[in-house]
Design a binder for these strands. Sequence first.
DNA 1: GCACTAAAATGATCTGGCTCAATTAAGGAA
DNA 2: TTCCTTAATTGAGCCAGATCATTTTAGTGC
Lengths: 248, 248
Amino acid sequence: MGSRKTTPLKDFSLGTHRCSVDLRLEKLGMVPFFDDLDHDELRVINQKFSATHHHADETIYHQDERARMLRVVVHGAVKLVRHTMEGKDVLLDMLEPGEYFGNLSTTGNAVYSETTRAQTDVCILSTRMNDFRSLLNDYPNVAMRVLDITAERLQSSQEKIRHLTTLPVKERIAHILVMLSEKFGEQSAYGLLLQLPLSRKDLADMAGTSTETASRIMSDLQDRNIINTGRQWVAICDIDRLADIADG
Amino acid sequence: MGSRKTTPLKDFSLGTHRCSVDLRLEKLGMVPFFDDLDHDELRVINQKFSATHHHADETIYHQDERARMLRVVVHGAVKLVRHTMEGKDVLLDMLEPGEYFGNLSTTGNAVYSETTRAQTDVCILSTRMNDFRSLLNDYPNVAMRVLDITAERLQSSQEKIRHLTTLPVKERIAHILVMLSEKFGEQSAYGLLLQLPLSRKDLADMAGTSTETASRIMSDLQDRNIINTGRQWVAICDIDRLADIADG
DNA sequence: GCACTAAAATGATCTGGCTCAATTAAGGAA
DNA sequence: TTCCTTAATTGAGCCAGATCATTTTAGTGC
């Protein structure tokens, strides 16, 4: 494995990124609950959204802040974190372009139930919650899709609970890597590369374990040639064996 | 503290239970997403539901079965369980009258993602998923409320993940007892009695621990006069101290 | 009241994963 | 190429909680 001098990860920086109307429309069209809409409808909806950029590691909003916006990832990856007073973070999800976050509900005093942080430089489209709600009124199909997607997320959240309570750490980590590869995997010289910066701590916070344990497990996986990994990056060499580990 | 000879729990058996139209309407009216509707609208909706009874411990539907129905608890308590091939169950929730379960989504090949079992004798109203969906089309307000409730459940599922990954078992159990008391608590001679049969195994499966550990913790709580407990029942004597334990 | 059964309690032992404490090395910056 | 920061690794000891094996007891049914 010769001497590498740079991350295999691509450059997410927004230096050149221009949020053209076309790009916005394209990304909005990728949002699962907008995929029934035609081009003209998307143009109308696009009006309601405004774009913002955030640098990697910047916090987009904080847990417990008053929740006013619904957002969509256009570029980059967003990390969804719930934290405890003791400073132990739980990493709930990593979002890719086309996924939404923020708040859906119009219940008066809603607050965000998690903190979201830019995992790379990101571009985000935001709309006021109320605008989004009236949009749901105008497009009942979209409302149904939003319901479906929320129900799906509930499912997978419950599946995560099952993992946390029944599986040993090694299986949990294997599982997480498989999931991430479905979202962020990209063929490369190093194997199926997860196209986002991903530290041992991130993995640990996702698996509900300590950084040290995550590190030991990753080392073991690398020794067995199942993955290939460096500082903040992971590539999967043998997805089948990894999947085997993931379910016992 | 004298010698008790019978459970303090009330009798849930359906021997005498008759699902009169009035009772059905009352319970449907309690369902959070129907609470905007007036009496006449409820009567229409009621037509779409049919009632079934199940004895305690009976399975209502199995995980991975094809999901066709949406159901509402009318009488009794329903246990929501996800199980693993290794036979380790995870108890996701206990539902009280007025709560819904089953499937919301119309995605073609949906299957139930959990098993539901009658925790007591129960009476359930069911409707075909498709009928429910068209109902959501006819009553957009209801659709919005369903979305809100699903989003709320997602929140609390994520909060559960936080607990499982960051809190020690004792705190998790204390927390679960507090939650259950909000749903099932009822003043009684023994304290705030949880009005449902609840074994050490149920608690263990909710907290993601072993029956033995759950038992030890319950014994300790009883020794400290925080709870009062017997076979399949729990009463809370000192909810404040319990809440203190629940958050460190 | 007595006997029976499944739930609960309890004891003893073992271990996965955590914590604390260094050490090593990857990869960006200059 | 070298330096420097911070991520990652590795080791050693420890402990919460699991597991296994009994014993006890609550509560039901007779």
